[in-house]
Amino acid sequence: MLEVMDLKKKFKQTLAVDGVNLYLEQGEIVGLLGPNGAGKSTTISMISSLIAPTSGDVRYFNESIVKKPQKLREHLGVVPQEIALYENLTGRENLQFFGKIYKIDKNQLAQKIEEVLDIIGLKEKQNALVKTFSGGMKRRLNIGVALLHEPTLIFMDEPTVGIDPQSRNYILETVKRLNKEKNITILYTSHYMEEVEYLCDRIYIMDQGHIIAAGSKDEIKHILSAEQTILIEAEDIKRDWIKLLENHPSVNKLTAQDKRLTLLVPKEMDFFQTVIETANETNTVLKSVQIQTPTLEDVFLHLTGRALRD
C-alpha cells in the first residue's frame, strides 16, 4: 500500500536520509530499527507528508503523496516521537480537540473517545490535565490521539522512549492488538531491538541515512548464520587477555564492557577451548562462558561495527 523510492533528505550540511527504499503491505507490522541520528524520524516525516523530500518519491496506493497528501492523511495516524499534546488540556479535551479537527461528528466522537480511552487504558485519568500525567500515560495518550479517525495505517516513531517497563509492555501489547484486531498496518520505529524483534514481521535496519539490512526476522538473523556470539564473564578483564583474543585469527569482532566480553567467531568452530586456555595464560578467573543465538543487536554490530545503543 505504501512504497518509498530512493528517498533523500538533505538539511543544509547533513544528509539525514540517503536513498531509502522500503514498502509496506496491508496488515503488516514493519520495524525500522536504527540508532539515534540514523534518519528514522526524518524518514517518517517525509512519508507522512510533513516535510518534502529533497529527492525520491513516496507512493500511497500508487499515487505520489508529495504533491497530494490529502488522501494519505485521511487514512494515516502518526504517533510522533515527541509528546505532541496540549499539556494544559485534560486527556479528554486533547482527544476532543484532535477529533474535531478531524471532522468527526459529535456523537460519533464521544463514542470514539470512549473506545480510544479503553484501548490506551486512560479512562480513569481522562479528566486530569496532561501535565500531571506520568511519562507512560503521556505516551499512551500520544498514541490514542492518532487512533481517533480510525486510520488504516499508523506510523509510530519511538513510542516507548523514556518510560517504565510496565507502560512499555502495555504499549507493545496495544500495538500488537491494533494490528491483530483491526488489521491496521504499522510502521514501528525504534532503537530497541527487542521491541522490533517482538513486534515486527519485517524489519529494516537503518544507519547513517541508509537502509543497511532488510527482510524478515529470520532473514536478517541469517546474515549472522556464519557466526556465533560468545558471551564471557570474568572476575577481572585484563588488557593482555583482550590483546590475545583480538589477535586470534578466528575472532571477527570483540567488545569489552566492565567484566563482560562479547566475541563474534565463526559458527562451526569450538571456541571454548581457546577461551579457557587464554584465560589461564593471563591468570583470568572466568565466571561464565555462553554461546548466544544472534540478536538484532548482533546483526547491527556485525554490519556497522558499532553497538545499537551507544
Binding site: 516525516s45 507522512s48 507528508s49 510533513l50 490529502q70 492523511r73 485521511e74 494515516l76 502518526v78 510522533p80 515527541e82 509528546i83 505532541a84 499534546l85 496540549y86 484532535f98 479537527i101 478531524y102 471532522k103 490521539v145 479517525h149
Partner: peptide, 13 residues
C-alpha cells in the same frame, strides 16, 4: 515546538 502543529496539518487542516 511540540509538533502539535504537525498533527493539525495531518488532520488535513
Amino acid at each position: 515546538r511540540d509538533h502539535v502543529f504537525e498533527r493539525i496539518l495531518l488532520a488535513n487542516v
